Amino acid sequence: MMKIVWSMVLLIAAITLMNVAECWEDAPANGGGEVIHVGGKVLCQDCTEGWNEWVTGQRPIEGCTVSVTCMDDRKRIIYYGRDQTDKAGEFEVTIKKYIHGKQIKPEACFTRLVSSPDPICNIPTDFAGGKSGVKLGRPTMVYRDTIKHVLGPFYYTTPMCDEPDTNDDDNSYGKQKNY
């Protein structure tokens, strides 16, 4: 009888150890030092200027908020981070590659513009995907435990440059909606 009890205890212990090992098999061997850096630049581009000034006259915006959102395999948010641009208009978000034992997959992350403190240049544009969000593709740099994605530049513009939505899908004066 005692042998059966010991056999059951050892069997339960072995199953428990296998489950614990299975949960941690994706954990990095070096203690979690791997990180993903996402960086870029945010600029203001004013369309009211002449062609030469418009093309070469962009200026960095300090204090813009840029976010990075990463999803898991079930399309749930596993990471959300943001950074504000410095005087040069540059931002950088650092993401740990493993969060709660789950690996962040860069291809499931996207970066987008959130807000601009500039009172004149605060309309997000979709140049380089800043307004709708851009997925992280191939890294710009891979070195040891560091992966870096350099995006953009993203642009804000002035309210005079904002193009109205001319799609007839939504709310048109000529059409009547039935509710």
Rank of each mutant, 00 (worst) to 15 (best):
59 R>C: 01
32 G>Q: 04
64 C>Y: 00
43 L>H: 02
21 A>G: 05
33 G>E: 10
46 D>C: 04
11 L>T: 15
31 G>Q: 06
23 C>K: 12
36 I>W: 01
46 D>P: 02
81 G>F: 13
78 I>K: 06
52 N>K: 02
70 C>L: 11
98 Y>S: 10
53 E>C: 03
56 T>V: 07
41 K>W: 04
14 A>I: 03
81 G>A: 14
59 R>H: 10
91 F>I: 12
87 K>C: 06
27 A>I: 02
13 A>N: 08
24 W>H: 11
87 K>D: 11
63 G>P: 07
52 N>L: 09
95 I>P: 00
52 N>A: 12
51 W>G: 07
89 G>F: 06
23 C>I: 12
46 D>S: 04
54 W>C: 04
56 T>G: 06
21 A>W: 10
82 R>V: 07
55 V>G: 00
67 S>F: 08
42 V>A: 08
51 W>T: 14
36 I>F: 05
88 A>Y: 09
20 V>Q: 00
17 L>S: 15
75 K>I: 10
61 I>W: 03
57 G>K: 03
74 R>G: 02
67 S>K: 09
31 G>E: 08
78 I>H: 02
39 G>F: 09
31 G>P: 01
18 M>D: 06
16 T>K: 03
96 K>G: 08
17 L>Q: 09
14 A>N: 10
51 W>E: 07
58 Q>C: 09
39 G>S: 15
17 L>R: 01
75 K>D: 07
85 T>P: 09
12 I>C: 13
89 G>L: 10
50 G>V: 05
67 S>D: 10
68 V>R: 04
43 L>V: 13
59 R>F: 09
29 A>T: 04
56 T>N: 12
94 T>M: 15
69 T>A: 10
43 L>A: 08
68 V>Q: 00
62 E>H: 12
49 E>W: 12
13 A>I: 02
24 W>G: 10
29 A>D: 04
46 D>T: 12
13 A>M: 09
31 G>R: 07
34 E>I: 05
57 G>D: 03
78 I>P: 00
51 W>K: 11
65 T>G: 06
79 Y>M: 13
56 T>E: 02
